[in-house]
Design a protein around this nucleic acid. Sequence first.
DNA 1: TTAATACATTACATAATTATAATATTAGTA
DNA 2: TACTAATATTATAATTATGTAATGTATTAA
Lengths: 97, 97
Amino acid sequence: MEWKEMQNKCEDISSLLKHFSHPQRLLILCFLSDGEKQVTDIYEAVGLSQSQTSQFLKRMQAEGLLSVRREKNFSFYAISNPDVKKILKSMQKIFCR
Amino acid sequence: MEWKEMQNKCEDISSLLKHFSHPQRLLILCFLSDGEKQVTDIYEAVGLSQSQTSQFLKRMQAEGLLSVRREKNFSFYAISNPDVKKILKSMQKIFCR
DNA sequence: TTAATACATTACATAATTATAATATTAGTA
DNA sequence: TACTAATATTATAATTATGTAATGTATTAA
């Protein structure tokens, strides 16, 4: 790969990995890795406030990592970006054995 | 893995991945992935100022990602953390093919 | 219709990162 | 000795991220 292409890749990858660089936000992603979850379950699991969780979820959705599905007055968030899933699996391989 | 252990892992992993979440800093890591390099070569390759490059390198060294070797008045930086190498390889697999 | 639940939004304070400029150090060279 | 190259350090400004509190909205349940 040429250097210029590498630079572009690094821009993209780093902007994705930014979301992995906060402990509870990474935990959210891990928590979502076995399927969609509703907001209350998420913030209880990771130990963040409702507000901050909502803000994180919103941002990750806006940036294409997550999808939302609204049902009744619940919101179900799920990982929508296949690269996110791949990264989580890699991390698991590297750090969880 | 129990949840509590997961939380701890996420703390560690996220604090490592923070360094991957800035475009030129990630590029530095990529550049170092084929061996040690001196500072001037690094900042010319990635297009950062000398000062900022030095600061980034220092921080990554302080946090255990990199090693330095001083020879004459050159500093040679290299990746010293095996997890960093593994992560770079994973990223390459995911994003570079 | 009132209350409660689930979530979103807004505003704001604080803290951390990033960027920039200037100066310092160290080693080699004319 | 003076000069230059390579790197580090410091200070500080600008930007972005994080955390918190308060309020808003929609839906369901009493």
